[in-house]
């Protein structure tokens, strides 16, 4: 990874005798440290979530697995909580909720945000302007505040929290998409597609989207960590996941009451949130570096 690869070798420009694009992509991916580290941790978290029933030593919800507030070590690596549940098992199962929350929230935000942003940018005119002004207005409120309001309206449970976090992120995705589509649609290839006879839908789906989505992957992976944090915050405030769910934010919230007597109650879920959020941020940064045209097209 430390061997410097000369920029000259990256000149994919002249169309002769150059490594296949796929191999080049792989080489560049391996060179990006944040992508490799972030990606590995993300992969690890995903595996933990998928294999939770196999790798978790105990039933996460079983009360009295051990004695109450057992110190970490021995049978209970991360100790037990106030009901004698194994914290490690709860953290492992918590990964499922966290990824689930992230996926749903980002999915909601992305689908609606991209649709609104792309429509506003492509249509332009008063319609696009109006749409974006509304988004700007919503954007001025902090995400968590909007999510709080929505949850208060929908009722406090994990599903509503995910929906609320997803909806509150729409203005963000819409604005980013709007900016990306706006700059893409000014490029001559869009004119060229129209001259050839491509319909508006074809221009958007076949020509614009393949150029717009890669940068959106970056935005989504950064948004993923934001969503995880927001959902954890809602759960912490008692507006998201409800006991006895092994959700990390909720675990922090209940563990808080014992923080002086049994600090390990918050260490497990706290570290888990920290590592996951950091991993997704690193991963997003890595993907961005990879897609950055300045990184790619640096030639002589």
């Amino acid at each position: 990874m430390s061997t410097p690869i000369p920029i000259v070798a990256d000149t994919v420009d002249r169309g002769t005798g150059i490594a296949s694009p796929r191999r080049q992509l792989l080489r560049r991916m391996l060179r990006s440290r944040s992508l490799v580290i972030g990606g590995s941790i993300v992969l690890f978290v995903v595996l933990v979530a998928l294999l939770a029933p196999i790798i978790a030593p105990f039933d996460p919800d079983h009360i009295g697995t051990g004695r109450r507030l057992a110190v970490p070590g021995g049978k209970f690596l991360l100790g037990t909580d106030e009901f004698g549940r194994d914290i490690l098992s709860r953290v492992i199962f918590g990964a499922r909720y966290t990824l689930y929350i992230g996926l749903v929230a980002v999915g909601i935000g992305l689908v609606f945000g991209v649709a609104i942003g792309a429509a506003a940018a492509y249509a332009g005119g008063w319609f696009g302007g109006l749409l974006m002004r509304v988004m700007d207005l919503l954007y001025t409120f902090p995400d968590v505040l909007i999510a709080l309001g929505l949850v208060a309206f929908l009722g406090p449970n994990l599903t509503n929290a995910m929906i609320a976090v997803g909806l509150s992120a729409i203005p963000y995705y819409a604005r980013v998409t709007y900016a990306v589509v706006l700059s893409e649609r000014q490029k001559p290839y869009v004119d060229a597609a129209q001259v050839v006879g491509a319909s508006h839908i074809r221009v958007v789906v076949r020509h614009l989207m393949p150029n717009v989505l890669p940068p959106m992957i970056v935005v989504a992976s950064l948004g993923f960590s934001a969503a995880v944090l927001s959902a954890a915050a809602l759960s912490f405030l008692g507006l998201g996941a409800q006991p006895p769910m092994p959700e990390w934010g909720l675990m922090l919230s209940t563990g808080r009451n014992y923080i002086t007597r049994a600090p390990w109650l918050v260490v497990g879920p706290g570290v888990a949130i920290f590592v996951t959020v950091m991993a997704f941020n690193l991963f997003g940064d890595g993907v961005r570096d990879l897609l950055d045209p300045r990184q790619r097209q640096r030639t002589l």
């Binding site: 490029k187 001559p188 290839y189 004119d191 060229a192 597609a193 001259v195 050839v196 006879g197 020509h207 393949p210 150029n211």
Partner: peptide
């Protein structure tokens, strides 16, 4: 569009890179 077509100035920008 079948009767008239266009060739653009910059072949680097007028062909969709993807």
């Amino acid at each position: 569009r079948r009767q008239i077509q266009m060739i653009f100035q910059d072949p680097y920008a007028s062909l969709n890179p993807r």
